[in-house]
């Protein structure tokens, strides 16, 4: 008898407990879900708009598709076909990749070397150099546009991919060095010293120990830099000018709006295409963010 009552009371307690836990967590869950929905809403609108007929798009808002729900006839892929075939979007897509990939790899390569030196090599003025680099984070890039462009014009770099790569490398470097130095500086000192005693030079320590252990930081900086370059309009516009053969997606998208903003259907479709690459990059590199890569090296 007593056993049964005990069991029952303990059961009811767990139910009460669970309810309590759920109720305590509910506001957080609710807020998170609400925020997520709020953030996704414009993207959803963009997707729906890009699939609608051009005439309808100009007359009514995207949410009107919900009134005759599940009516698939109001959607079509014509906008995408139009964008991809006629508007130089394919070339622009290629240009964007040609710009973004080197403009991501170059600053990573340079910044990682610099970060290692700033974190683990002894040389006079190291701290001041680092402070100057951090200070560069607050310099608005607009300030550099005119002097750099003038330099590019004399060097014949304006309107070329190389010019954009170098510009993006320069603009990305302060953040990259700052992020990577902070990460590399937290690697256990013992590991670096063990490698030094094992006979590794600075270059070997860098390539064999520091870079493999810094992949999470390098990956997150890669995502930052890639997204920034991919979405950039200003730098491309200034240094590439109106040169359509080298124009990236962002420049073409801007032109897609049309002189009087009438070509909405093309803009939405084009914008959605341009979103695919950043998403792919993010998901591809996401696994490197997983923590705990250092577990097991030193005690802890």
């Amino acid at each position: 008898m007593t056993g049964v009552t005990k069991l029952r009371s303990s059961q009811s307690r767990t139910v009460a407990d669970r309810l309590e836990t759920w109720l305590t967590a509910a506001p957080v869950h609710f807020t998170v879900i609400a925020l997520a929905l709020l953030w996704t809403l414009p993207t959803a609108g963009l997707l729906i708009s890009s699939l609608r007929q051009p005439e309808v798009l100009l007359e009514t808002g995207w949410w009107t598709v919900l009134t005759p729900p599940l009516d698939l006839n109001q959607f079509h892929l014509g906008n995408y076909a139009a964008v991809l075939s006629g508007q130089g979007m394919a070339q622009a897509f290629l240009n964007s990749l040609i710009i973004s990939i080197p403009a991501t790899i170059m600053p990573i390569a340079i910044a990682t070397f610099a970060a290692y030196a700033l974190a683990w090599m002894q040389f006079p003025g190291r701290q001041i150099l680092f402070i100057i680099i951090v200070g560069l984070l607050v310099v608005p890039l607009q300030m550099t546009l005119i002097p750099v462009l003038r330099a590019y014009n004399t060097l014949g770099l304006s309107g070329t991919f190389l010019g954009v790569w170098l510009a993006h490398t320069g603009y990305g470097m302060p953040l990259g060095i700052y992020l990577l130095r902070n990460y590399i500086g937290t690697l256990p000192r013992d590991l670096i010293e063990a490698a030094a005693v094992d006979g590794a030079s600075h270059l070997k320590i860098f390539t064999r120990i520091v870079v493999p252990l810094s992949t999470p930081a390098i990956a997150s900086f890669a995502v930052f830099q890639f997204l920034w370059v991919w979405n950039d309009l200003l730098v491309a516009l200034v240094y590439l000018g109106g040169n359509q053969t080298v124009a990236p997606v962002t420049l073409v998208l801007r032109n897609l709006v049309g002189d009087r903003g009438q070509d909405w259907h093309l803009l939405t479709a084009g914008a959605f295409i341009s979103m695919i690459v950043p998403l792919l990059v993010f998901f591809a590199l996401q696994r490197y963010f997983v923590r705990g890569l250092l577990a097991g090296s030193v005690k802890g």
């Binding site: 013992d190 490698a195 120990i209 890569l293 097991g296 005690k299």
Partner: peptide, 9 residues
């Protein structure tokens, strides 16, 4: 080393 400093990767 006291921490052993094994290369974790």
């Amino acid at each position: 080393f006291q921490s052993y400093a094994l290369y974790p990767h």
